[in-house]
Simulated scan of single mutants.
Amino acid sequence: MFTIEHDFDATVITLIDEGHAGLCEDVTINAFEDCVTLEQIDPLSAEPVRITLSLTQLRDLAAALDLPEGSYRMGGKAV
């Protein structure tokens, strides 16, 4: 399950883990004009952990989801 909200400066997507015994904490994705952040509460410390991706990194991640193992550059496979 997920939710989508449009705030003033970001689109916020929350991924909710459901349906099995080993549930993970919710993941919140904030899409800003110049970056995307992913946040999840660390169950051991109860503190949020944040990862920030540039738009280039996000583009590369999206492309990588559909590619086989290897090393790539956008526009062709790296040598």
Rank of each mutant, 00 (worst) to 15 (best):
F2G: 00
T3R: 05
I4K: 00
H6A: 13
H6D: 11
H6E: 14
F8L: 15
F8Y: 12
F8R: 13
F8W: 12
D9E: 15
D9F: 11
T11F: 04
T11Q: 06
I13W: 05
I16T: 00
I16P: 02
I16G: 00
D17Y: 03
D17G: 06
E18P: 08
E18L: 12
G19I: 00
H20V: 00
H20R: 00
A21P: 02
L23Y: 04
C24V: 13
C24Q: 14
C24L: 15
D26V: 06
D26Y: 02
V27I: 15
T28C: 03
T28K: 01
I29S: 01
I29W: 06
A31S: 12
F32D: 11
F32T: 07
E33Y: 02
E33C: 00
D34M: 08
D34F: 01
D34R: 07
V36A: 10
V36G: 02
V36K: 07
T37S: 11
T37P: 01
E39C: 06
Q40P: 06
I41S: 00
I41V: 15
P43K: 05
L44I: 10
S45K: 04
A46W: 05
E47Q: 12
E47W: 06
P48K: 04
V49I: 08
R50K: 10
I51S: 03
I51T: 12
I51L: 12
I51C: 06
I51D: 06
L55R: 03
L58W: 12
R59L: 14
L61D: 02
A63L: 12
L65H: 06
L67K: 07
P68M: 04
E69N: 02
S71H: 14
M74Y: 07
G75N: 03
G75E: 04
K77V: 15
K77R: 15
A78K: 12
